[in-house]
Nucleic acid binder design. Structure first.
Length: 495
RNA sequence: GGCCUCAUCGUCUAAUGGUUAGGACAUUGCCCUUUCAAGGCGAAAAUACGAGUUCGAUCCUCGUUGGGGCUACCA
């Protein structure tokens, strides 16, 4: 049975790198008919953020990554499902204690009373002398009686992993192949902190085993601590899971993706009006591709075609321009009703729209407005501004009405004639197809050049240098408003 | 400093011991065209460097350089 998990720390928002890790883990589970679980690793109470778990869950659900087990969202509340819980590490303290005791009893871990200052000195000395850094094993030499006495005296202590000093630890990583580490260079990692909380290293091993995780999919930053984890599996006599260490996501300068160079939280991209389909598709292709030229992938298609073996080993730059392209592709593919529905929050936020509420007949009409711009904008957030000219004719200079190959006299003559002609079209016939046809015929009949008519028409209706075509705008505006805007232009021309 | 690791157009990537080294984004030219966007057809753009193995290396080996990760009682 394939079981994967995503195990974030609730320290803030979900990072896009985290989203990709979660996605890959989710895909592995789903394509094998397995389960994907969510576990919360809140063992660092110093960095704990109250709303962290909720934020992460919301971003995950937004992206369509829903856990089968563990920490989930139910009725908009954080809750837990599954029989291998609790799935929040701070609720599992007795479990970690039990396994620590087991390690201690077997002599595979030991108490350490060293103060931070001493540890710091040791580290500096090692670095200065070009030695590998790590705990020097001082407390390993303590007599059993001494340890007991110090514990009884209530001295501050931690429990450390007793790493073998010979041999090497080897594993076959699903993305990186065979990875080897010399055991002598692996540190005697702290497993249980002085506050009684486990470190990541103990908790992750205990939990992954107890929760029957078959594949550990995580970031590259864990490669060098994997030998410690493997050693723990060996001490406990447990079968280790498969490991897949994912390459990092990078900034444009190839440093580790960080907040300083742009947004890194999924929530931020959501707020900017990116579609979850686009983010998921984009992030999936950062470090993986199907080996074909197909680029637009739905979640179901990803589940079908994804494979860890094809994940590349090198880091990938998070390139927002490519994300923009994906977003536009999805915007084009979605119906205008769907886009309208999703864009509603941005419309409601926009200042002019609030004032214009009376003019909004209904959602269906809004969808017609949206269709004008949905294939031209990058994000949902761009939409309200892009269609603003429909609600309020922007002020513009009369020179804008003159086509680049035309003259003011020509426009002054054409526009009133055009208005009369449009006036003969009935309200029933007022749609872009008929308008296009009728105006086209009229242009031919009058022997005008297309641009000399369509350019000023379009500018009259949009008040903008750039906009959708005049027929589409006229249809959305309706006959009355179209004629009114033509009047405005005609007046402007005679001034 | 130590350990680990990575390296194809600017970016994401494909490919093979023998290819005109392919695609996408971005850039750019032309076409379409009333504008912009879209679309169509093009262009420019890469195997980091140096050895070795080989008839032949981008691919295999070694080294160099460069990047990244880890080096915590953070995850």
């Amino acid at each position: 049975m394939v079981r994967t998990r995503f195990a974030p720390s609730p320290t803030g928002k979900l990072h896009v790198g985290g989203l990709r890790t979660a996605l890959y883990a989710y895909l592995v589970a789903k394509q094998n008919g397995g389960q994907f679980l969510l576990r919360i690793e809140d063992t660092d109470r110093g960095r704990f953020v109250e709303t962290g778990t909720m934020n992460i869950l919301q971003s995950l659900y937004w992206a369509g990554i829903v856990p089968d087990e563990g920490v989930v969202l139910q009725d908009d509340k954080v809750s837990q499902i599954g029989d291998k819980g609790p799935y929040i590490q701070s609720e599992r303290l007795p479990i970690y204690k039990k396994y620590t005791d087991e390690l201690l009893a077997a002599g595979n871990a030991y108490y350490c009373f060293c103060a931070n200052e001493r540890l710091e000195e040791v580290r500096q000395f090692q670095q200065k002398n070009k030695l590998p850094t790590g705990y020097d094993g001082r407390c390993l030499k303590l007599e059993k009686k001494e340890v007991e006495a110090m514990l009884a005296a209530g001295e501050n202590s931690v429990v450390r992993l007793k790493m073998p000093k010979t041999g090497e630890t080897v594993w076959n990583d699903l993305v990186r192949g065979v990875v080897k580490f010399k055991n002598e260079l692996v540190d005697d990692q702290v497993l249980l902190k002085s506050d009684g909380f486990p470190t990541y290293h103990l908790a992750v091993v205990v939990d992954d085993h107890l929760m029957e995780i078959s594949h550990v999919v995580r970031g590259e930053e864990w490669v060098s601590s994997t030998p410690k984890h493997l050693q723990l599996y060996a001490y406990f006599g447990w079968q280790p899971p498969q490991f897949a260490h994912l390459p990092l996501l990078l900034n444009a300068d190839k440093s580790k993706l960080s907040k300083r160079q742009g947004d890194v939280a999924v929530e931020d991209y959501c707020a900017k009006g990116y579609l979850p389909e686009a983010i998921v598709n984009f992030v999936a292709f950062l470090g993986w591709n199907p080996g074909t030229e197909k680029e637009i992938y739905s979640m179901d298609e990803l589940i079908k075609d994804f494979s860890l073996e094809k994940v590349s080993k090198a880091g990938a730059v998070f390139n927002v321009e490519k994300l923009d392209w994906f977003n536009r592709e999805y915007l084009k593919r979605l119906s205008s009703n769907e886009v309208t529905k999703r864009a509603l929050p941005w419309f409601e936020k926009s200042d002019y729209f609030k004032d214009q509420k009376l003019k909004i007949k209904d959602r269906e009409w809004l969808a017609k407005v949206v269709v004008l711009e949905k294939d031209r904008v990058i994000t949902l957030a761009d939409l309200p501004q892009a269609v603003k000219f429909i609600f309020e004719l922007p002020g513009y200079q009369k020179d804008l009405l003159i086509w680049r190959k035309g003259t003011i006299e020509e426009v002054q003559k054409i526009l009133p004639e055009l208005k009369e002609s449009l006036n003969t079209i009935s309200i029933q016939d007022w749609n872009k197809l008929i308008l296009e046809q009728k105006v086209g015929e009229w242009i031919k009949q009058k022997m005008y050049s297309t641009g000399s008519v369509l350019w000023p028409l379009r500018v009259s209706l949009s008040g903008q240098q750039n906009s959708p075509g005049p027929d589409e705008i006229a249809e959305v505006l309706g006959k009355d408003e179209t004629l009114r805007r033509l009047d405005v232009a005609i007046v402007k021309l005679s001034s």
